[in-house]
Amino acid sequence: MFSFLSKRFLQALLVLLGVSFATFIVGHLTGDPVELMARENATEQDKQDLRVYLGLDRPLEQQYFSFIVKAVQGDLGFSFVQQAKVSQLIAERLPATLQLAAAGFLLALAISIPLGIIIALNRGTIWDFLVTTLAMAGQAAPGFWIGLMLVVLFAVHLKVLPVSGYGGAAYIVLPAITLALQSSARLTRLVRASMLEVLSADYIRTAHSKGLRERVVLFVHAFRGAMIPVVTMAGLELAELVSGAFITETIFAWPGIGRLAVTAVSQRDFPVIQGVVLMSAAFFVLINFLVDVLYVVIDPRVKLK
């Protein structure tokens, strides 16, 4: 088990290195960043000064190496455009993003797990059909569109919730629902399928035949078994909520990482883009690692390997 996890950990580190390298290369493939950062009518001398100031006059491999060395120490560089440390910019925005992701994730779990189990137990009924269809529809509609329609309904017409912004609890409702809808549509279907599979599995039949009470079978055995694929999927969903909330954050003016990044792209603020990419990749890798750990905890079969 230890070797399994340490191997995974090493893999995760390698992937991060790969991501940082790819980001760096892409950032430098797109031409001279100084051309884009300096004002439109800056003189050659102004541009050269900036190049030296930013350390862009050094050889590429030196730039990459120093980026990595600093990144390991938690220094993600300095945003020239905003005159601020990238690590601080990210740290300032991270709480908002995590709040939203957590709210969206919990909401998605709160909807999908009970709903998935209920319709699995009532398979073939009209409810099963309705919920499944609804979930498919939810999966099909663009998330941002649902967000906009929610705004029209709740904020513009009913005026019960704020259109957008950041502040009290009321502000998080619409963006969290927007984020949660698609995840919960996917997860509901997954919970249903995985529950159905487990219910027909041998060990559940055995449990039944041993005369265990229905409820015990259901919650102790079936639930635990059914959660294994759900945990993986939920992990992916969470990682996506954190790194993929760009559109939701834009629609709802949520001051998180996503908006930081989108603004940085239009400002050609490379250090910030690089930092955000690395941060979300790290988050993705971390969550996947945690999922692996959880696996070992929940699934007895993994331990045997």
Partner: peptide, 16 residues
């Protein structure tokens, strides 16, 4: 490894 790196990239940001 390539697949994993691609998966770890925040896709929307990469695309933009």
């Amino acid at each position: 490894f390539l697949v994993n790196v691609q998966l770890a990239f925040p896709f929307t940001l990469l695309a933009i």
